[in-house]
Structure formats: structure tokens, C-alpha cells
Simulated assay, not measured.
Amino acid sequence: MRELDLEEFVDEIYEDSEKNPDSKYIFFLGAGCSVSSGIKLASELAKEWYEELKKQKSKFDKFNKKYKIKKKDYGEYYFEIFETLFPTPLAQQKEIQRITECITPCLGYYILTELMQKAQFNTVITTNFDNLIQDALIYSGNKRALVITHQDLAKFIERNNTPLITKIHGDAHMHPFNNSSDTKEIPEDLKIAIQGLFINAKVIFIGYKGNDESIANLLDGCKRIDQVYWFGSSQPITSKLKNWWETLSSKAYIKEREFDKIMSLIKDKFDLDKPDFKKRFEELESSYSKAEETETETLENIKVKSFIDYFILGNTYFEKYEYKKAINSYKKSI
């Protein structure tokens, strides 16, 4: 095993991508990447849910008697706490949606989406439920990605010039896999498709601790990964990936876990552009204005207008401060 510092890693992948246009990289992202976007880590969520469980005294007493959780053990009982507080699939999905709502991409995600415009780096696999990568692509105006959010879409997993995001544990809005039974095994079709992506690829793990049994089973079946880069405060030797990690023939460990910092150095080395948010906003505003003008023109040209047509025209004129036209249209809509 090699130990690299962050700068060595960035130099290595840059030189390789420049010299070998057929090199394939995959980013494997875990929950740690979304922390600076406002999503709490599993241990923090478990603690929050544990405190909330206290409000249901009988259930809490029964739970505490069974598991006898100590303060430092919240994360180890993530699934048990989650499933006790949210006992039904619908309740679990709503909680995941709550966690992932009203958040915006951090710096690292914007840089990643710029890098994903390069075919060598356009593939991401993640255990996260959030839509931060998709949001960053949309906000920055970059090429959209094919997003695989369910096992039934596994047949569409293929590496080409279109950015690809595969969400192993599903999506916040479509059956998220966030309980002990769901995360034990990845559906076979999805597993085979992902393992196919890993063949001769260089896989970069960031923000992932390696505590999913399903991911361990997935990686155990990957026999032809070209190179693994593992970012974190430690190697995954105490996680469920221990056996897989120890049998890897080509691996590098980088002692760094800050996603934004990692991606910032990549941005500088690859000379990636900063998203032009002003231009993107102007494009969206222009598109909206043109659509509004087209609709107004269409309504104005209707010879026999309905009261709804006049009402819509009245609203449109009012928003444009053309008050006389607005009043006239409102009168005709009555």
C-alpha cells in the first residue's frame, strides 16, 4: 500500500489523465461529503433521534433497557434508533426527505460537476440520498447527468460521454434504503451493473467510512479494479471493508477527509472554471421572459377569448406595470 499526501494524489491523477486518455475514474462518495452542505453525519442524526425518542417515554424505556446505549455509541445504533422512532417505510422516507430538504451544494460539489464534464471523470457512485450533485449540475448550467435511483434502472448503467450518477441506497424521494434490512444486500441487477463499471477503473473513495454490509459484498465481487484511492482520517481496517481492503493489490491511502479541500486542489491543478452563476441566472430569466411573451402574444391573438384568457392577460399586464391594459382585461374577465 502507498501513502500519499493530497498534493501527490492530485498530481498523480492529473498526469495520468493527461497521458492516458482511456483512463477511467469513479468517485465513490459517502455522507462525509455532504456535511458542509448542511447534512448531519449518521452519529449526529442518531443522537438527535435518540433525544426525540425520549418524548415517547414507554417506547424509550423499552428501547434503552434493550440496548443500554452510552453517549459515545449513538452512531453504532443508528439503524436501531431510526427504526424505533420511525417504524413504517413511509415515516422513514419522510424523515429522509426532511433531512435532505432546503440544502444547497457545497464548494466541493460544484467543482466535482465541473470535473464531471470530462469523460474520464464523469462517473459517480454514492450512498447518499441527497440531490446535491444533480443540483450543482443544474445551478451551474453544466451537462446534465443520467441519475440511477432505483434497481429497475440498472440496465441503463453504462459509461459513455454522459455524466452518470448511481445512488446505491436510492433517493430521498424514491424508496431510500435506510434501515437494517435494506442495507444488507444490494439488488443483484444493480450490483452486477456497478461491478461492471469498476472493471479497470480507478476508484476514489471520499467521505465514506465503510460500515455498510451491502457495500462490502459489492466490493468483494470486484476483482479487476485498477487502483483504489481511499480518503479519510484512517484506513478502513476496522470497518466491514477490512477483508476487501487488505486483499487489494493496488491501493493508496490519503489522510484527508475534507471534501471541499480535496476538490479545491483538484480545481487548481486541472484549471477548472468557476460556475458562471450570473450567466446561468440571466439564461433562465431570459427563457422565462420569452415563454411569457409567447404566451401573452398567443392569448392576444385569440379572436374569441374566454374569461380565463382575459384573467391571465390581466395578471401578465399587471406584472409588467401596464395597469390600464390589466384593468381592461380584468373587466372583460368578469
Rank of each mutant, 00 (worst) to 15 (best):
Y253K: 07
G232T: 02
E12L: 11
D152I: 08
I302S: 01
K202D: 10
F63D: 01
F86A: 05
L284Y: 11
N211C: 08
K47F: 13
K72V: 02
M263A: 03
S333F: 01
F63S: 04
V228L: 12
Q97A: 14
S289P: 01
S333G: 05
P236A: 07
L241T: 05
S289H: 13
T149W: 00
E48I: 13
R280F: 02
V228F: 06
K320F: 06
Q92S: 12
Y50N: 01
Y330I: 11
S36F: 14
Y74W: 12
Y77F: 15
F281M: 12
K261C: 00
G196Y: 03
A119R: 14
E95I: 00
L4V: 04
K242V: 02
L115H: 11
N178F: 12
S250K: 13
A201I: 08
H169L: 13
K54A: 04
S306G: 04
A154E: 15
K59Q: 00
R257N: 15
K324C: 03
K40F: 09
K278V: 13
F63C: 05
A91E: 15
T166H: 05
D220I: 04
E300K: 14
F318P: 06
D171G: 08
D268R: 12
F231P: 06
T166Q: 10
N178K: 09
Y109P: 10
I199C: 11
K223Q: 15
H169K: 13
P105H: 03
M263S: 00
I157A: 01
Y288A: 12
H169M: 12
I199G: 07
E319I: 02
Y317P: 07
E8T: 13
P21R: 11
L164G: 12
Y321K: 15
A201C: 00
T298P: 05
D273K: 15
S234M: 10
T126G: 00
H169Y: 13
T127D: 01
N160R: 14
H150E: 11
P89E: 07
N161W: 02
F205E: 02
E76W: 02
T88A: 09
K303M: 10
I266K: 02
Q117W: 08
V124K: 06
I81S: 00
T162L: 15
I262E: 04
N160D: 15
Y288P: 01
E80L: 07
M263N: 00
I266G: 02
I81N: 05
K278E: 14
K71L: 07
P87D: 06
P105T: 01
D130K: 02
C102Q: 15
K279I: 09
M263Y: 05
K209L: 08
K167R: 12
F63Y: 11
L265I: 12
K320W: 07
E3A: 11
I157K: 03
K62V: 05
K331T: 12
E12D: 13
S214T: 08
E76Y: 10
T162C: 14
N161I: 07
I192C: 00
S264M: 13
R98P: 00
Q195W: 11
A136C: 08
F307G: 04
P163A: 03
L115M: 15
F28M: 10
E246N: 15
S250N: 14
T104R: 11
S180N: 09
K71S: 04
E293P: 09
P89K: 11
D130C: 06
T294W: 10
